[in-house]
Design a binder for these strands. Structure first.
Lengths: 144, 144
DNA sequence: ATAGTAGATAAGAAATATTCCTATTTAAGA
DNA sequence: TCTTAAATAGGAATATTTCTTATCTACTAT
């Protein structure tokens, strides 16, 4: 898969080793759907083809991939942290608190932020997530 | 303290008992500074005057106070969840990833959000936090 | 003021998520 | 192929939050 090769190239450029575990972790983010994965999600997804991978390895690599800029950490209102590829075009999320579904929304609040409000603060990153009920769950009347 | 009486009034209206533990928890949010407190912060703060309060009681009540709308849950990018009074005027935060300080910013992204982007999603709440370096930490050169 | 009761609490156990430790293994350069 | 710094597996440890249960208490109706 070509997309995977690009990511592997980035690993090499950063001077980190290209291990099969890392390739498996990266692969789990590829594919048609927009993937917002937790460490546990990845551990399970990989388990099929790589049953001996340790959860610690997943965590360690997610942290490393975040640090070198390949992944972005997401707070989707759950206890566990999720990750997505930074190469996806920038977006935020509409998160259904009922079914957990996260739709992407292509609106970024930083665009409309008056720099005076920020003053001397050096912005490095931001999070913006909208919580509520998706169309499906609204139709179900918001009941569980 | 008058502010505390108002909060106690809200508890009564919601039909929950006004226990000394609850009063102590609410009190820890009052005062001049803008308080963003974790369960542990509150447990420690209360310990002076109420040494036997259990951490579980703090967690249980924070959840309840959030559910009845007195507190709002915050994700400040740390592992633990923080809370603030919803009666504070609506705001978001500039969070320093170095020293952990959280300044309030009075700009809300929902104001500029085109409703078409949201379509049939029913918005219930949102989070918007900006991470980076505060003026002090920037001057220190971003070193620890 | 008193008693009854639903709801609240304390304390510790359990669950969940993440990180640490260390012996072993391996990717990649010489 | 050899070397070695970096990475891994597996289990232990930590941190945060929730659960369980026996006891207690704020509030309501007397």
């Amino acid at each position: 898969m070509q997309e995977l090769q690009l990511l592997i190239q980035q690993l090499k450029e950063k001077g980190v080793k290209v291990t099969p575990q890392r390739q498996a972790i990266l692969s789990s983010f590829l594919g048609p759907e927009n993937k917002h994965l937790s460490a546990e999600d990845i551990h399970l997804a990989i388990a099929k083809t790589y049953p001996t991978i340790s959860l610690d390895t997943v965590y360690r690599n997610l942290g490393m991939l975040r640090d070198i800029g390949i992944l972005r950490e997401l707070n989707l209102g759950e206890r566990r942290v999720h990750y997505e590829l930074t190469s996806n075009i920038h977006h935020h999320h509409l998160i259904c608190t009922q079914c957990g579904d996260a739709q992407e929304i292509h609106y970024c609040p930083l665009k409309f932020l008056d720099q005076d409000k920020v003053n001397k603060f050096k912005i490095l990153s931001h999070s913006f997530e909208i919580f509520g009920l998706c169309e499906k769950c609204t139709k179900k009347g918001g009941l569980l």
